[in-house]
Amino acid sequence: MNKKKAIFLDRDGTINIDKGYLYKKEDFEFEIDAIKALKRLSDLGYTLIIVTNQSGIGRGYYTKTDLDILNNHMCKILLKEQIKIEKIYHCPHHPTKGIGKFKMECECRKPNPGMIVEGIKEFNIDKKNSYMVGDKISDVLAGISAGVNAILLGNKNEIRLEKEIKDKISIFENLNEFSMELYNKEKK
């Protein structure tokens, strides 16, 4: 079976506007040109997989059902544009602020690579030709650890990067800018 190329995507701050512990579908708003970018990436043949820290579940702010309702809402909008999100992995844990079974160190919470590693196995992903795209340093650290190309969105984050990390990632203003660059690279 041929390996697939994938884009692993953070959700909040990458696909949608990060409003902090977002769980109500009526509060959901896509980032500017995110739908256009996702369509471009999909049309290039990438499997789209979301990997998102959701410690709001572990902190008791909302439930997994709330998260599922919001994610289904987002996916329905994207499907109308012929964009399929193959799977959404989420981590409900937090090492210090989680409640009960959610208070733990885990392999899935970014910057750990657990969700990406699981996606690589489940969907037979070619790491060399795949990307982790996110707006936080924890996103790119997870991508680097998982062995995929790491993309950081938002130049404001660049100043906090150590040199050895800067050398391993690419930085773009937003998801649309990254998607255009990848499109131009692949269509040459």
Score class of each variant (00 low, 15 high):
residue 23 Y to V: 04
residue 62 Y to L: 07
residue 47 T to V: 14
residue 45 G to R: 11
residue 74 M to I: 12
residue 157 N to Q: 15
residue 12 D to C: 09
residue 13 G to K: 08
residue 159 I to A: 12
residue 171 I to W: 00
residue 150 A to V: 02
residue 187 K to P: 00
residue 52 T to V: 06
residue 99 I to P: 01
residue 93 H to M: 07
residue 27 D to P: 10
residue 109 R to E: 07
residue 91 C to Y: 03
residue 67 L to S: 05
residue 151 I to L: 03
residue 158 E to G: 00
residue 131 Y to W: 15
residue 70 L to W: 06
residue 115 M to C: 06
residue 187 K to D: 05
residue 90 H to I: 12
residue 74 M to K: 08
residue 59 R to W: 07
residue 126 D to F: 02
residue 57 I to H: 09
residue 182 L to T: 12
residue 152 L to S: 01
residue 133 V to P: 02
residue 139 D to V: 00
residue 83 I to M: 08
residue 186 E to S: 14
residue 134 G to P: 05
residue 61 Y to I: 14
residue 29 E to D: 15
residue 87 K to P: 00
residue 100 G to H: 11
residue 140 V to S: 01
residue 105 E to H: 13
residue 41 L to H: 08
residue 133 V to D: 05
residue 8 F to Y: 13
residue 30 F to P: 11
residue 52 T to A: 14
residue 139 D to A: 01
residue 127 K to W: 01
residue 17 I to S: 04
residue 110 K to T: 09
residue 64 K to C: 04
residue 44 L to G: 05
residue 117 V to P: 00
residue 26 E to P: 00
residue 85 I to S: 07
residue 118 E to F: 06
residue 52 T to H: 06
residue 41 L to K: 06
residue 83 I to H: 11
residue 16 N to G: 06
residue 61 Y to E: 08
residue 21 Y to D: 10
residue 149 N to S: 12
residue 79 L to E: 15
residue 2 N to T: 09
residue 92 P to G: 11
residue 58 G to Y: 09
residue 71 N to V: 03
residue 58 G to P: 10
residue 161 L to A: 02
